[in-house]
Amino acid sequence: MKAIVRVALKKTVLDPQGRTISAALNSQGYAAVRDVRQGKYFEIDLADGLDRAAAGAQVHKIASDVLANPVIEEFAVEIRD
């Protein structure tokens, strides 16, 4: 079983890296790019045979306690078999 956690700055927090990437893409002619948000991606390998809901709850706690800083970041958890 695997858990995927995506962490990114909250929409209300300025992302200077994303903004710089966005400006660079525009300058390369990608006029359709309106905004870029940069984030982090975690692949967590979990023991097999875990209860899906329990695994989700545990990874949710890991994400909120450790992987993301709730002051500035938000996260999404996905459990894969």
Partner: peptide
Amino acid sequence: GALMRNRNL
């Protein structure tokens, strides 16, 4: 609070 990347990167 939190500390983030400097505004000018």
